[in-house]
């Protein structure tokens, strides 16, 4: 399994926990899935997601700073893939 699918799989798992499986039965979550249009994520649910991400990836991915740099509209218009790419970029060892 590649690192990419690991992060994607983990983010999808967190989304299922936050949103609830009942609603997601008809939704296949992939990199192109949008938080707003397809998942209909509420802003308070994104807070819960961010918290799970922070618990999982901790200091390596500073979500408070990430979110502070974006507007709510930008956040909600992101795709799952956008978020996964941000996490992966932060998880790469720093170039020396």
């Amino acid at each position: 399994m590649t690192q990419s699918s690991d992060v994607l799989g983990e983010v999808v798992g967190m989304l299922v926990e936050v949103v609830g499986e009942d609603f997601l039965l008809d939704t296949e979550i992939g990199p192109d899935t949008t938080f707003n249009d397809e998942l209909a994520l509420e802003s308070i649910e994104f807070v819960a997601l961010a918290e799970k991400l922070q618990d999982r990836y901790g200091g390596r991915v500073d979500f408070a700073a990430f979110i502070a740099g974006l507007g709510l509209d930008e956040i909600m218009n992101m795709t799952v893939g956008d978020l996964v790419r941000h996490i992966e970029a932060r998880l790469q060892p720093a170039a020396v």
């Binding site: 979110i67 507007g71 956040i75």
Partner: peptide
């Protein structure tokens, strides 16, 4: 709810 500050001033 708290998200209105979470995404604006708090960070």
């Amino acid at each position: 709810n708290l998200s209105s500050f979470y995404y604006t001033l708090a960070g």
